[in-house]
Every structure is written in structure tokens, then in C-alpha cells.
Simulated scan of single mutants.
Amino acid sequence: MKADPAVQRRLLDLAECDAELNRVNHRRRSLPELAEIGAAERELQAKRDALVAAQTAFGDIDRDARRLETEIEQVRKREQRDRTLMDQGGSSKQLEDLQHELQTLARRQGILEDELLEVMERREALEADVEHARGEVAAAEAALADAQHRRDEAFADLDTNEARRLAERELMVKGIPENLVSLYDRIREQRGVGAGPLQGNRCGACRIELDRSALAEVRDAAADDVVRCEECGAIMVRVKESGQ
């Protein structure tokens, strides 16, 4: 293939544009915010699990407290009933039985109230745990939202840069023959880099030195010949600095 040397040199600008587009895509895939978001999501899930565990423990102890309160209320009602019966009078045996039951109810109420006091203390501690866990979840949600916001800002900048580069590329391609662009694009898709300058005896695309026979072929090639690197296949553009 042949192409005017000046046209071939435009491939270097095209290659630089494509290299910048590659850097944009690499940056998009490797933003530190992406790893930060992943860690923040895992942290948030752990905090939410801890909150559920705290809420479950609080719910259990709260049910225990309500059960004890109900039992205490039942004992009090039974005591009130027995005292009413005693006030109404009866046989000495009935009054003795009622007095004995009142003593039993008093002991039972004391035991239940002691249990309730202990449960209420535990309930208060677990309630504090729930509030702390809620705060931890809120902090984790804020950290995740912040990382997502910074990611979105970075993506917006990259999108702007990419759009600008794509517009520049479109203009560059219009100034290069279609067959040369097709060759360049095919090489770039297969090898990653479509063209590079010949720098002394080194290919600017793969940075590998050419052997003597390859250099001789380049030296003997006409100025408008499109030469390629035998190592990476990229188009080697000869510039003034090439010395060829």
C-alpha cells in the first residue's frame, strides 16, 4: 500500500487520539471510587445485618417485658379479688385460705417484679444498641452515597473527554484515505496499536528494535510506501527523527 508521507504522519495524531480514548476507557474501569463503592456496599450490608440482629434481640426482650407486665397485672387483679372476698367475710377456713393465697400472690408478684426490673435494664441496653446500629447504618449510607457521587462526577468528566476525542477523531479520519484508515483500524483491533513513529531503529508502537534486514527494507522503501513493523504489525510512520 502507498500513501503520501504527510498523510501517513496524520496516523500518528490518530494513534495518539486512540491512545487517549483507551486511557479514558481504562480510567473508567479502574476508578478508585469503584473499589471504594464495593467496599462501602459491603460495609453497609454488614451494618444493616447488625441492625437487624439488634432489632431482633430488642424485639425478643420487649416481648419478655410485656409478658411479665401482663403476668404482674393478672396477679394484682387476683389479689384485688381475694381482698374483696375477704372484706365480704366468710368461714374461718375460707378466710384462712384467702390469706394464704394473698401471701402466695405477694411472693409471686415480688418475683415477677424483680424479673421485670432485670428485663427492663436489659431492654434499655438493647434499645441503645439499636439506636447505635441505626447511626452506623446512616453513616455507611452516607459514605456510599459520597463515593457514588464522586464516581458519577468522574464518569461525567470522562464522558466529556471521550466525546471531545471522538469528535476530533472523526475530523482526523476525514483527512486520511479510507483504505489506509481501514488498515490502521484492523491492526489496532488485532494488536491494540495501529501506528507508531519509527524512532531510530526502534518501532514506536511496540518499542522493539528492528534487526538489520528489517531496517534495510525500510531504508530501501519508497517514501510513500506504507511500512509495517515485523514484530507488532503496526504501521511505522517515518518522520524526520527516524533518520530514514
Rank of each mutant, 00 (worst) to 15 (best):
L51S: 01
E20V: 06
E20D: 10
D49R: 00
L31D: 04
A39P: 08
V24R: 04
R27P: 00
A46V: 10
L34K: 13
R27N: 11
I37D: 01
N22C: 09
H26S: 15
R27G: 09
A53C: 05
E41Q: 06
L31V: 06
L31C: 09
R23V: 02
G38F: 04
E20F: 06
A46N: 12
A53F: 04
A40E: 04
R27I: 05
I37N: 03
A35L: 12
Q45R: 07
G38V: 04
E33T: 12
L51D: 01
R28M: 13
A19H: 01
L51F: 06
H26R: 15
A50N: 07
P32A: 14
V52G: 08
R42L: 09
E43Q: 15
A40F: 02
E36Q: 15
E36R: 12
A53P: 02
A53D: 03
R23Y: 03
R23F: 07
E41R: 13
A46K: 15
L21A: 02
N22F: 08
R29Y: 14
A50Y: 08
R23P: 03
L44A: 11
N22Q: 14
N22I: 10
E33C: 02
D49H: 09
A53K: 08
A53R: 08
N22T: 11
R29G: 09
A46I: 11
R42D: 07
K47E: 03
E33F: 11
E41L: 10
L21G: 01
K47A: 05
E36V: 06
L44D: 05
E36S: 09
P32Q: 11
L21N: 07
G38E: 13
G38D: 14
E43K: 14
L21I: 03
V52Q: 15
V24T: 03
A40Y: 00
R27A: 12
